[in-house]
Amino acid sequence: MTKSELIGEIAAANPHLQQADVEMIVATIFDEITAALARGARVELRGFGAFTVKRRDARTGRNPRTGETVPVDEKFVPFFKAGKELRERINAGTAASLAEKS
């Protein structure tokens, strides 16, 4: 599913809304998550998951093609951890979920 399909489905389920409004809502959600992460905040959406930012220290990398060493600066990477409910739902019916219940 892509963002435009998501928007289409939400719009179809809410006929009283304009497609443009739904587009704005969906854009706002992801823009705000992005902005929060950019200022170093954590985003926690219970049942869905949590977005955090992890720091990667500076290191000396190597160009795999030429073998020459290149300095890689410290950087920050976004990280997503699925929430409990999502984790259970994607595993519903698997051996792992059945074992957990017993």
Binding site: L6, I10, A13, N14, V22, I25, G47, F48, R89, I90
Partner: peptide, 14 residues
Amino acid sequence: LLESVLERMCQCLA
């Protein structure tokens, strides 16, 4: 609406 967006994403992943 926020909830339906998250719910729809969960459904797809499930």
